[in-house]
């Protein structure tokens, strides 16, 4: 079984992002970048399936600028076998990412795609579902448990009321939630080894797809900042404030 994992280079989740000077977009100058945390979980799950003898090969795909190679190398250092970067400086919407990924799936004859449920920068939470739709495959989003056997994937999903378990016929798409696993740290020897693993860079034009944006960013702004309030000395003082001043109790 061949697994494709998709990883995204995002701004470090702990960095506070601000608008640029003319509020036309966000200011990412010199901002620290990282792999989207959910993509690390997808990588870990794929490697575990390989270690369990279920997967034969783990291919890692990223679609982004040249520096996205760093995130592919991180996946390779964790244990993925080879990488593909579809290089573009454009910020692509999830629909276009899904269309490009679908092309890679056709070339590579993939049986299972693992990706993060959302990215920590834009929080779209769409790519996996869109990819499943384009391929007409089954989808399991928000996975917290994954079990593969006899061409079926049994997936426990984190939903609003608790957990839901569904079964998919492979090939299929699974998007990973936080509790699926704890990603490993790559060891230094594995980081060195990853530098020699194959990584193919494909220019985006090679795919011949119409990737016209479907929405226009008109403006970005910072949200209203909450002011720090009062530190109170006792529970009684707090209840008095909540009842009398605020009227919320």
């Amino acid at each position: 079984m061949k697994i494709l994992i998709m990883v995204k280079r995002v701004t470090d989740p702990n960095v506070t992002i601000r608008p640029n000077m003319d509020s036309s977009n966000v200011d990412l100058t010199n901002v620290k970048m990282a792999m989207n945390p959910f993509c690390e979980i997808a990588t870990e799950e794929a490697i575990r399936l390989k270690e369990a003898g279920i997967a034969s090969e783990v291919i890692v795909l990223s679609i982004g600028d040249k520096q996205s190679q760093d995130q592919i190398r991180t996946s390779l250092a964790m244990g993925a076998d080879r990488g593909i970067l579809i290089e573009t400086d454009a910020t692509l919407e999830p629909l276009n990412i899904a269309k490009l990924a679908a092309k890679v799936i056709e070339e590579e004859e993939i049986d299972l795609v693992l990706l993060g449920k959302q990215s920590s920068d834009k929080d779209n939470n769409q790519t996996g579902q869109m990819l499943a739709a384009i391929k007409d495959w089954g989808q399991a989003t928000f996975a917290s448990k994954l079990y593969i056997s006899n061409e079926k994937a049994t997936v426990t999903r984190e939903v609003d009321t608790g957990l839901q378990t569904i079964e998919l016929t492979l090939p299929a798409i699974v998007t990973c939630d936080l509790r699926l696993n704890t990603p490993r740290f790559a060891s230094l020897p594995n980081i060195m080894k990853a530098k020699r693993k194959p990584l193919v860079i494909k220019p985006i034009e090679e795919f011949g797809l119409d990737l016209t944006p479907r929405f226009k960013m008109l403006n970005v702004e910072s949200p209203q900042v909450r002011e720090a309030g009062d530190i109170l000395g006792s529970v009684d003082e707090l209840l008095e404030k909540l009842k009398t001043t605020e009227g919320v109790l």
Binding site: T11, P13, T16, I17, R18, P19, V26, S120, D121, K122, D123, P213, R214, F215, K216, M217, L218, N219, V220, E221, S222, P223
Partner: peptide
């Protein structure tokens, strides 16, 4: 977007 640090206005085409 960006963990609530940015509010974006977007026009759908």
């Amino acid at each position: 977007i960006y963990a609530g640090n940015i509010i974006a206005t977007l026009q759908s085409l």
